[in-house]
């Protein structure tokens, strides 16, 4: 499954908005099967922040862990937010090196 974040808006800021976005999308996640990857596509997102990210991405991380793939993350606010989420949640996103466009979640040792 691919989640296109721009469908929630291009300015993704605020816990309240992040919570509402996840709550609205949650029913669609029922279609994800056990081994399916969940791809989050940041294409078209202009402003991305830790408050929205923690509510939305954080909930996806809790649910899917290593099955989560983050794509098109070259926007600077996306990169800065992912860095702080790594620190807060004590995790590492593994960058695959191809223009840093895909992040794979893995637990920090």
């Amino acid at each position: 499954m691919t989640i296109f974040l721009k469908k929630f808006g291009t300015t993704l800021s605020g816990r309240q908005f992040g919570r509402e976005s996840f709550a609205a999308f949650k029913p669609s996640l029922r279609n994800v099967k056990n081994k399916d990857k969940v791809v989050v596509d940041f294409e078209g997102v202009v402003t991305f922040t830790p408050s929205w990210g923690d509510e939305f991405l954080g909930s996806l991380l809790d649910k899917f862990g290593k099955r989560l793939i983050l794509k098109n993350t070259d926007n600077l606010s996306v990169q800065a937010t992912l860095k702080i989420l790594e620190k807060v949640r004590k995790i590492n996103f593994s960058r695959n090196g191809r223009n840093e466009v895909i992040y794979v979640y893995s637990k920090k040792i």
Partner: peptide, 20 residues
């Protein structure tokens, strides 16, 4: 240039911090 989203992001965090 491409740094403008960093400014809107920090404004968003400071403003939303007040509300949250």
């Amino acid at each position: 240039g491409r740094t403008f989203p960093l400014i809107s992001a920090i404004v968003g965090e400071i403003g939303n911090n007040s509300f949250d």
